[in-house]
């Protein structure tokens, strides 16, 4: 057998592999990379002095202005999204644990219930929270009676924004956690107790490390969209709770300041990328995500 004949099928296999990549790569190129490049050049455009009109250029000052004018919005977005992510993890972990390991025949039903809110639009779900958190609603009345609310209300405060973010992105936390916990071999947990580990030690040494891929995926899937969200701040917050998404929206729609909106988007993307990179390195699960 000649060498050429041996190489043939391998080459063909490689070609097929590239062909399989084609749809995904083309999709990304057209709808992500090209817009991203365009966005980058927009972010460097120069004002022509008349409103809403810009010309090509390399105006790096847009970035300086974006940061100096909107740093509070960035900070707020990262803090709100961070708190919401932690809350979602605290709520989701026990739930996912229960579904994966204890739910038995109720498992399918419970998973459907987790996903069910997605059948209603994001916007309507957030509107529903306006009713849930209204001044006359039970929750607000109860917490007020206990003197737990500094403003005497929940709606139109940062509490409402964080609560809304937590709720809206909760399924993104539950599902990866469930997938990770479901994969754990129960015999490993049994082995823990066989080796005289307390339930807590078993959890700390066995379950938690094995669920790390789910924790990392879930926190990323929650944090990233929450940091860029603006609907919760718009509908549930007050004038002092606006996040970076709101600033981008205002610059784009109200001011028609496209360079500024683009620069803000780029800074948001970059800061999320940095945070995520550091986080994944610290979490030490490169091979798992």
């Amino acid at each position: 057998m000649t060498i050429a004949a041996a190489v043939g099928p391998a080459r063909r296999r490689a070609r097929i592999a590239y062909l399989l990549l084609l749809p995904g790569v083309a999709w990304l190129a057209i709808f992500f990379i090209i817009p991203l490049i365009s966005l980058f050049f927009t972010s460097l455009q120069v004002s022509t002095g008349s409103s809403g009109k810009y010309k090509a250029g390399f105006n790096w000052r847009n970035y300086v202005e974006a940061l100096s004018e909107y740093w509070e919005f960035f900070l707020r977005a990262l803090i709100y999204a961070g708190i919401a992510t932690v809350l979602a993890l605290v709520i989701a972990y026990p739930l996912a644990y229960f579904i994966a390991l204890k739910a038995g025949r109720w498992r399918a039903l419970m998973l459907v219930l987790v996903v069910a809110p997605f059948f209603a639009s994001f916007l309507l779900r957030t509107y529903a929270w306006k009713t849930i958190l209204a001044d006359d609603a039970v929750i607000t009345q109860t917490l007020n009676a206990l003197h737990l609310l500094p403003d005497g209300r929940i709606l139109n405060t940062s509490i409402a924004v964080i609560a809304g973010l937590t709720y809206n992105f909760l399924p993104f936390m539950i599902l990866p956690l469930y997938a990770a916990l479901d994969k754990i071999d129960p015999r490993l947990i049994e082995a823990g107790s066989d080796l005289y580990a307390s339930p807590f030690t078993t959890f700390r040494k066995v379950t938690w490390p094995l669920s790390m891929p789910g924790v990392v995926a879930g926190t990323l899937l929650t944090f990233i969209p929450a940091a860029g969200d603006y609907i919760n701040a718009e509908l549930l917050g007050s004038t002092k709770d606006k996040m970076i998404g709101n600033a981008i929206q205002t610059n784009f729609i109200e001011f028609r300041d496209y360079p500024m909106a683009s620069a803000l988007s780029f800074i948001l993307m970059a800061s999320i990328l940095i945070i995520v990179t550091v986080y994944i390195r610290r979490a030490g699960t490169e091979e798992l995500v």
């Binding site: 817009p35 010309k55 784009f252």
Partner: peptide
């Protein structure tokens, strides 16, 4: 909004 901005602002802004 930003994607739309590309369509609007890209090229000859």
């Amino acid at each position: 909004a930003v994607v739309a901005a590309c369509g609007a602002g890209g090229g000859d802004g």
